[in-house]
Design a protein around this nucleic acid. Structure first.
Lengths: 178, 178, 178, 178
DNA sequence: GATGAATGAGTCTTCATTCAT
DNA sequence: CATGAATGAAGACTCATTCAT
């Protein structure tokens, strides 16, 4: 009498989340290339093989993590799902984004690693961008709607600010991992 | 007729520069971990062995590159070497910094890779920071001198801006390397 | 109403046959080593665990398949079970053999894989040969009985022919599997 | 003072041959899939890494081996390089082929493994066939030229014979490797 | 009987680094 | 100074097999 499909699904879901959380922490802390699959497995308390039962490759793992993170963010952002930011919503949008940046710093560190250095291949990169781009496009659209003379530049300026907030801390020296 | 010691030194210097330039290009384009010593040697038209004649390790190579880049920047920045930025100098400082960011984008990409993800070990990281920190401290000091209420926050804001300018382009999707 | 023991046995037999047929197709098509237990289970529509309920190992599976195939062949060949081929029987023997080669090409492909490349261990190989050898010995004996000067060579010549017929198609290029 | 290019080339040639010979013996004896790169390196007395200095993959290794073997055979066969077999040449052709089969049995065993079971991918298979096919086409052409009613069938018959000679020995049981 | 999550030994492959020449 | 053959440790990934349910 095997487990029911629901039981199996639950096991899978929990284990998948465990792996992703563990990987996120290690990737953010030690860097993608310096974190081996063995490291992740060890920290998650599972075997190497099992990880490949959930993710076909190290690359796919990071892609899943990115997708997952952005989906979660989008859910918390776009309140009325019309993919256009009302003036009113802009406040909560920015607030939410900053909250996310603060609370989910591991995720954002990894995100910047992914887009700064080619750690995944073109296809994987494309998959991630497919999720990330629409999000950031909301910003451009907002500035455009606001009637700024140069919405493109304006949104870049804003992005630069946010961007700088996230990785700007880097300008000041801090202890390196290892 | 054998070469003079000066000639030898010049040859060494040129070769060293060749290696560093080649490495910089490859690191920036393909990422530190995806660029092998063999790649660098091949692109530089030299043998792997010779590279180790100039740099004791891959890590030391990147440290040297960082040091070198910052020294060059500092020379072009701090005109009167008093390590304090006069109000007048601030303009040229920022201008110079932006010029550098534009013209030496490879260098800055690598710099951000180094400080975002732990690609070098603690000691190497420290060596780099020993050079980089004083530079960025100039900014804090300037804002402090300007009498801003919160110089620390102000300089962070400024750094965030610059930082965002450099890597901010990342927010918008772009073709990945490979 | 619980099933009778006979019904259970029948279910077992049918499932066993299903597995063997599936495995045969995959082994012949993709090669023994490139066919995983998972592949077989998936194609047969059962779980990996169940497969091990019927066969103790991948190796034993292939041995069973071979035994099974030869037993079936023998049944159709040696009409009067005297293990000696009458002149009359020789015709039908060869005919039957050729028919088998044509109709059960998967089986023969696997057989040749097994004897050409050591894909199973010594013991398993021995078990297979215990079944296969007597069959081919019938041929030698026949030629001996026929009074050929060199029955050994003669039967080898005959075997070479049959052998060549089976795998001879290989000489001409054909699309590789995958 | 490094070695001259000629010296390096000689080292490479000898080492490459050593690896190929070692690999041929092991592949023929233990099968392609049961022979690991480590096995080959150990038997050749070199490190695993060095093997990859000469062959980009296990697959490419076997492709090279096949190409090499056929080129060697072709050289010894087609005396006047007109790619057509005169009646006179046919004798020496067959003789040479049989000699090769006898003397280079390892090579032929591997060849049959390659064409019987999909051990290399489609591209690699194609590369091998590009070399092998013209050779066997000589036979078909010869039978066609001889005016046989059914040259295609005739050459197949001949091929079957040769084929059977090579792997026909398999019909009689023999000790398996391991 | 039946399931599929879990294991871990084994495989191919990469690459920084060394060293004889 | 210069070369590139050689090493070996480490990493990603596979898969036959086990076992709790």
């Amino acid at each position: 009498m095997p487990r029911t499909p629901e039981q199996y699904q639950q096991i899978r879901d929990e284990k998948k989340r465990l792996i992703m959380n563990t990987a996120l922490e290690l990737f953010a802390g030690n860097g993608f290339h310096r974190t081996s699959i063995s490291d992740i497995a060890r920290h998650a308390g599972i075997s190497k093989g099992l990880l490949y039962n959930y993710f076909v490759s190290k690359e796919e793992l990071v892609v899943e993590m990115m997708k997952d993170g952005f989906v979660e963010l989008i859910v918390s952002l776009d309140t009325n799902r019309d993919t256009v930011l009302a003036n009113e919503e802009m406040k909560s949008f920015i607030n939410e984004l900053l909250q996310s940046i603060i609370k989910r710093s591991h995720f954002w560190r990894l995100y910047f690693a992914v887009i700064s250095q080619p750690i995944v291949n073109k296809t994987a990169y494309g998959e991630i961008m497919e999720i990330a781009t629409p999000l950031f496009k909301l910003l451009s659209d907002y500035f455009a709607k606001m009637g700024y003379e140069n919405p493109e530049a304006e949104s870049r300026f804003f992005a630069a600010l946010l961007d700088g907030i996230i990785c700007g801390v880097n300008w000041t020296p801090q202890p390196a991992a290892m």
